[in-house]
């Protein structure tokens, strides 16, 4: 990786949507929109509501399915010279595995991020990510068919995220990324109705950052595999908190909506901070917390 900054799935499209604002090759990695075996229409509108220092969404994994991705989107992105990583989701261990197997055939996709933590779908998604058994079952099924680096994205909506991280490490994950969104709810008091079409949604943005930093810190202490940190990162300062907490790389999500050029600014800001503190590389500060 040329730098530790990647984009979070579902916030950066397939990268090309942001090509007017940033040179995609200046980003460490792009994690493209969640992909499932079959096409999904997603949830009804309204899917988004703003909240103090953040937002909730219940998009529900709208995508055209892995075959469409392989035939139509992959040719458009395969020559972008950065790590183009596919986020894979599903509703059973079998269809996670089938989807991953198809992506395994794509030469220029160096890794996948397995989403066992989407709070916005009825079947699958977070259901697998909230128990050690469920998480391990999906990772095992995918590990059998997927031969390249496997990152597993974890949900914060659990009692012990470190236990889930250990379970996916034991099942064969090469890295974990965290956190996915926090489940939340907003109510329209005049209508006495939830604002979002499925009542609840996943909360993201700077409001969730302290929760995310805490999760990264707990998981990094527990596992031996690399940790990718995300959740509310808006600035290089925020990113460095995650690195110190134990993340080897970070993802930027919601901030892309506020500043479509934020990724490169954060990458440059991390380098400036390292220079100012006499550090030669990111690895010198990963997990270097005085706690």
């Amino acid at each position: 990786m040329k730098n530790p900054v990647m984009t979070a799935s579902g916030t950066f499209g397939y990268g090309v949507e942001f090509a007017d604002f940033v040179n995609l090759e200046d980003i460490g990695g792009v994690i493209v929109k969640g992909t499932t075996l079959l096409p999904r229409e997603g949830n009804d509108y309204p899917r988004m509501v703003e909240t103090a220092s953040g937002m909730l969404n219940c998009v529900g994994l709208q995508n055209k399915g892995v075959d469409y991705f392989c035939e139509h989107i992959y040719p458009e992105i395969k020559d972008i010279r950065t790590n183009m990583i596919v986020n894979v989701s599903g509703s059973s261990p079998e269809d996670y595995a089938e989807c991953a197997a198809r992506v395994n055939e794509l030469a220029n996709i160096p890794a996948i991020e397995l989403n066992i933590s989407c709070p916005n779908v009825k079947q699958g998604g977070m259901a697998f990510g909230v128990t050690t058994e469920g998480a391990a079952a999906v990772v095992k099924a995918v590990r059998e068919v997927y031969k390249k680096p496997l990152i597993v994205k974890l949900s914060p909506n659990v009692t012990s995220i470190a236990d889930i991280a250990l379970a996916v490490q034991d099942a064969g994950a090469d890295a974990v990324s965290l956190i996915n969104t926090l489940m939340g709810m907003v109510i329209d008091i005049e209508k006495r109705k939830p604002v979002l079409s499925i009542a609840t949604g996943g909360m993201s943005g700077p409001a969730v950052k302290p929760v995310a930093v805490r999760c990264v810190w707990q998981v990094a202490k527990a596992v031996d595999i690399p940790v990718v940190g995300l959740g509310g990162i808006m600035t290089a300062h925020d990113a460095i908190e995650f690195l110190l907490a134990g993340a080897s790389a970070i993802e930027i999500g919601t901030a892309n909506f506020i500043d479509p050029a934020v990724t490169v600014k954060v990458a440059n800001g991390i380098n400036e901070w390292l220079d100012q503190h006499g550090c030669k590389s990111v690895s010198e500060i990963v997990g270097q917390l005085n706690a």
């Binding site: 916030t11 229409e41 997603g42 899917r47 988004m48 892309n256």
Partner: peptide
């Protein structure tokens, strides 16, 4: 004028149901 977040077709929040399925109002 559906409620939007990114404005670029990335977040898929502002969708409208059409004969071609859910599409982004912004993009």
């Amino acid at each position: 004028e559906n409620m939007m977040a990114c404005g670029l077709g990335a977040c898929l929040c502002c969708v409208e149901k059409t004969v071609k399925g859910n599409v982004c109002v912004c993009k």
